[in-house]
Design a protein around this nucleic acid. Structure first.
Length: 485
RNA sequence: GGUCCCAUCGUCUAGAGGUCUAGGACGCGGCCCUCUCAAGGCUGCAACACGGGUUCAAAUCCCGUUGGGAUCACCA
């Protein structure tokens, strides 16, 4: 009895593209549900459509899921008691069930050609009637079937939809019901001998003992069909829960033209997987304590599927960016430095030691929101010379303040500055500010601007003391002298 | 078009008949801090789609309207 109560959920992506952020959210909610209920979380690859599936996409799905921390208990790579976990390796089991259904009178062979089906469809559209398969092959005699077969026709197998109503209690939407008379007899086995999606999922979920199915609400209409198959097979119907969709800001389906859609694309852009998971969890779910920055484990402990919002939610970058920034600020420095390196590949990293690189990341990480910003934000650390922004040249370096400050610094300060001692240099700069404020009435801010402009070519950037020390005396002297010329 | 789902600030949401002159977060404005950009602290702006009911009382329940979404394949 114990095994019957075990919570088993699954995520069943189809490898016809990289792992979509929406699929990632579905995976996350399944994972959370499994964790919260001490159940198993299964990964199944639905590659029934061999034409569109590829190994590269399968690898992308594995990598993305792992990067997000959504590790599965059973799956194609790790195995498990109910394998295989890849549909293309399960092709021999579906016909058995199809035959069983036919023997019991729940399914029948359909010899209609695509053309005939299309004609039927057009006819009903013309008559403004909702389209639905007529069921004309339902009562073919053995002789008729033989005749059709002799013509070389390969039959598909259709499920005979019973009369009445199909209903169930959705874990997030509540009670749902469907009028069976609106559903035509649907194909479960294609004429080429492979199962259709609706059939394969049911067989697989049944054999894999899936207890709860959490998925996007685009599957609601499939649910009726699937429940009918479970019932025909005399199998226990799992519990269903349908999540609202993630929409783009224009309320359409999230697609390429809105920017990144695959988890791997977000990662390439410089989003941290921890932030991605956290953000996506907040689409439809909210923490009971109001504290939104949470680890996967914390979210799992607080997760209740019944409290998930049943409406769609819009994917806005503002909050994702903010959250990503929060994670960047808090992340372990050594780890972050490694993550950042790919974005710094255009520079000669050998100019600095590993420790110094870490320091560069440490002092530049503060204002950034995505990792890729660091490419530009660390630019002035590299190379002997620095590129001065036109605006900075004009407004700062050509200004009166710079003309006073910079020569003074060259004359009286550079040799005194302590490039090895952060505290001392900090004081020396503070003294310099005080000096110009008292002697020339120049604001502290402006004094620093002049130096910053000369050394970094910009008006803002990392902490000045840290920057000077990192750059080192040679570069600083060179750059300040170059600026006064 | 048929069917189904959904509807609180711009966005994500809290809210399960009275505690709501509707709370939080992001974003936006202001102030403080400050060598800059940030961060942090304080603060301001901003929503119950509309119309009917039910009830002493409705953001919360019911009906309708409108709007949005999904789905109607031998794709998954």
């Amino acid at each position: 009895m114990e095994s019957n109560n075990e919570v088993r959920v699954r995520i069943a992506p189809s490898p016809s593209g990289n792992l979509h952020i929406g699929t990632a959210r579905t995976a996350l909610f399944n994972y959370l549900f499994a964790k919260k209920n001490h159940g198993k979380y299964v990964l199944r690859i639905e590659d029934t459509d061999l034409e569109r599936s590829s190994q590269a996409y399968i690898d992308n799905i594995y990598d993305s899921l792992k990067a997000l921390g959504l590790n599965w208990d059973e799956g194609p790579d790790v195995g498990g008691p109910y394998g295989p976990y890849q549909q293309s390796e399960r092709f021999d089991i579906y016909p058995k069930y199809a035959k069983k259904l036919m023997d019991m009178g729940y399914a029948y062979e359909c010899f209609c050609t695509q053309e005939e089906l299309d004609a039927e469809k057009e006819e009903s559209i013309k008559n403004k009637k909702p389209h639905k398969y007529s069921g004309k092959c339902r009562h073919l005699s053995e002789e008729e079937k033989e005749k059709l077969r002799a013509q070389g026709r390969k039959p598909s197998i259709r499920f005979h939809v019973p009369e009445g109503e199909t209903s169930y209690d959705d874990m997030v939407k509540g009670h749902l019901h469907f009028d069976n008379s609106l559903i035509g007899d649907f194909v479960i086995m294609k004429s080429n001998g492979t199962p259709t999606y609706n059939f394969a999922v049911v067989i697989d979920d049944m054999e894999m003992k899936i207890s709860h199915i959490i998925r996007g609400e685009d599957h609601i209409s499939n649910t009726a069909k699937q429940i009918m198959i479970y019932n025909a097979l005399g199998a226990e119907v799992p519990k269903f829960g349908h999540l609202g969709m993630i929409l783009a800001p224009d309320r359409s389906k999230l697609s390429k033209r809105h920017g990144a859609t695959a988890v791997s694309e977000f990662v390439e852009k410089g989003y941290l997987t921890e932030a991605l998971v956290n953000f996506v969890a907040l689409l439809g779910w909210s923490p009971s304590d109001g504290h939104e920055i949470k680890t996967l484990d914390e979210i799992a402990a607080d997760f209740r599927i019944s409290e998930v919002s049943s409406s769609n939610s819009i994917f806005e970058y503002d909050k994702l960016n903010w959250m990503n920034g929060q994670y960047i600020k808090k992340m372990d420095l050594a780890k972050l430095t490694q993550l950042v390196k790919p974005y710094l590949s255009c520079y000669d990293l050998s100019e600095y030691t590993e420790k110094q690189l870490e320091r560069i990341v440490e002092v530049t990480r503060e204002p950034i929101t995505i990792l890729s910003e660091l490419t530009n934000d660390t630019k002035y650390f590299f190379g002997k010379d620095v590129e001065i922004e036109p605006d900075v040249q004009e407004k700062i370096l050509n200004g009166e303040v710079a003309k006073k400050v910079l020569p003074y610094v060259i004359e009286n300060e550079l040799d005194k500055w302590d490039f090895d001692d952060e505290e001392k240099l900090h004081e020396q700069l503070a003294d310099l500010r005080t000096y110009f404020k008292e002697q020339h009435g120049i604001k502290p801010k402006e004094t620093m601007w002049a130096i910053r402009a000369a050394v970094t070519g910009r008006t803002h950037g990392a902490d000045m003391v840290a920057t000077l020390i990192l750059l080192g005396k040679d570069r600083v002297v060179h750059r300040i002298k170059a600026a006064v010329k």
